[in-house]
């Protein structure tokens, strides 16, 4: 059952990813990406990461992709039926990575990893969101602050760049 669910999600994710790259219309690409985001969120739910699933939808689908659509519409982009001239390069890179992946799975696969025995909080004690919240404000306080700075930079930077009239000295 779990495998069936996984394969459904995986199939849709992969197909949607291909569509994102292959479709000519940016709007269609964005919508394919939306489908992909939903299925990734579904995958998270099967992995018992409900918090991330919700955040995935809220942030990726609700904010990031809406922004993309907004910009696509603002700039009123229609068809884009041209590809870059980098077919050979992309082909080579892609083929190399595919071969690598095949080697990876066939030759060695995933051997038993080292199970972490650190001081990390483990999932299960409380709810998923609770667990993440706990570590976010204790163990990961410092990255949290750095992330807030990143958002500050993004906010001010976006305003500075997109503002129509800029104050000059």
């Amino acid at each position: 059952m779990e495998q069936v669910v996984f394969f459904y999600f995986a199939l849709v994710i992969a197909a949607a990813s291909v569509l994102v790259v292959a479709l000519r219309n940016p709007i269609y690409s964005a919508l394919a990406l939306l489908i992909m985001f939903f299925h990734v969120a579904g995958l998270y739910v099967t992995l018992h990461a409900e918090f991330l699933a919700a955040v995935q939808i809220i942030v990726y689908a609700g904010a990031i992709l809406v922004l993309y659509l907004f910009v696509v519409m603002l700039l009123n982009l229609r068809q884009d039926d041209r590809y870059h001239r980098q077919w050979p390069m992309a082909g080579i890179v892609g083929a190399t990575l595919v071969i690598e992946a095949i080697i990876l799975t066939v030759m060695k696969g995933w051997t038993s990893p080292v199970v972490a025995t650190g001081t990390e909080t483990t999932v299960g004690a409380t709810t998923n969101a609770g667990a993440i919240g706990d570590v976010l404000y204790s163990t990961y306080l410092f990255p949290f602050e750095v992330a807030s700075l990143i958002l500050l930079v993004a906010m001010i930077g976006a305003i500075m760049l997109a503002k129509k009239d800029i104050g000059e000295c």
Partner: peptide, 25 residues
């Protein structure tokens, strides 16, 4: 009764924009 109910609501609300945006476009 899921334990991230509010996040669920927010997520759903945020997707609501898509219909409008797409319809407009």
């Amino acid at each position: 009764d899921i334990n991230i109910g509010i996040l669920y609501i927010l997520a759903i609300a945020s997707i609501g924009a898509y219909g409008i945006i797409l319809g407009g476009w």
